[in-house]
Simulated scan of single mutants.
Amino acid sequence: MTVSEADLETLRVQLGRVPRGVVDIAARCVCGRPTVVLTAPRLPDGSPFPTMYYLTHPAAVRGCSTLEAEHLMEDFNRRLAEDPELAAAYAAAHADYLSRRDELGSPAEIDGVSAGGMPTRVKCLHALLGHTLAVGQGVNPIGDLTLDVLRERELWDPARCSC
């Protein structure tokens, strides 16, 4: 795992602040800039931080913010309640997230807490998309659905640079 000074500077610009707890770049734009940062489960100041896959790409962040403002999460929550297969896959995504984070450490304060509302509700599309982009499609069904909607609506597509 390597994070270059150029990566850290790009993250600083993307986030508007100095990045904290960066372990690696979990996903990159086709141009090579960071899209998702892999963040330590405990920040340098000692704070626990459950969001291991942190979405940083400005266009992807804007796209997720648009979908959240349009209440797409309500639709996804309804689907989770009505579709046992989707709910089971989402619960499996939660377990995957925790398993991967345990490889970096497991602060007691966030034991059993993943991100984005997993395993029972959809709370943050940014975190769920970050999971999908970091580990690939087929693991987090809500992250996958979010990516599909972003592409369909032409809000963001990881196959095209929009940096």
Rank of each mutant, 00 (worst) to 15 (best):
I25G: 01
Q137C: 11
G136E: 10
T2W: 06
L15S: 11
A92Y: 02
L55F: 05
H131F: 11
C161T: 13
G112R: 07
D83G: 10
D45W: 09
A87F: 10
I142T: 01
V37S: 12
G21C: 03
T39W: 10
R20Q: 15
H71D: 15
R17Q: 14
G21V: 09
A81T: 03
A115D: 00
E82R: 14
E9V: 13
S4F: 03
R78S: 12
E9C: 08
N77M: 01
E109N: 01
E152S: 15
D157H: 07
G143R: 02
R160Y: 13
T120Y: 15
V3D: 08
L98N: 00
G130I: 03
Y97D: 01
P48F: 04
G105S: 07
E85K: 10
M118T: 00
A108G: 11
H126P: 06
K123P: 01
A127G: 01
A92P: 08
V3F: 10
T120L: 13
H71E: 13
S65P: 03
G46T: 10
R153V: 00
L67H: 03
K123A: 11
G130R: 03
V36A: 06
E5Y: 08
T10M: 09
E5L: 14
L98Y: 00
T132C: 13
H71L: 14
E68N: 04
L15F: 09
H126S: 05
R78C: 04
P107W: 07
L145I: 03
A95E: 15
Y97S: 03
H57K: 10
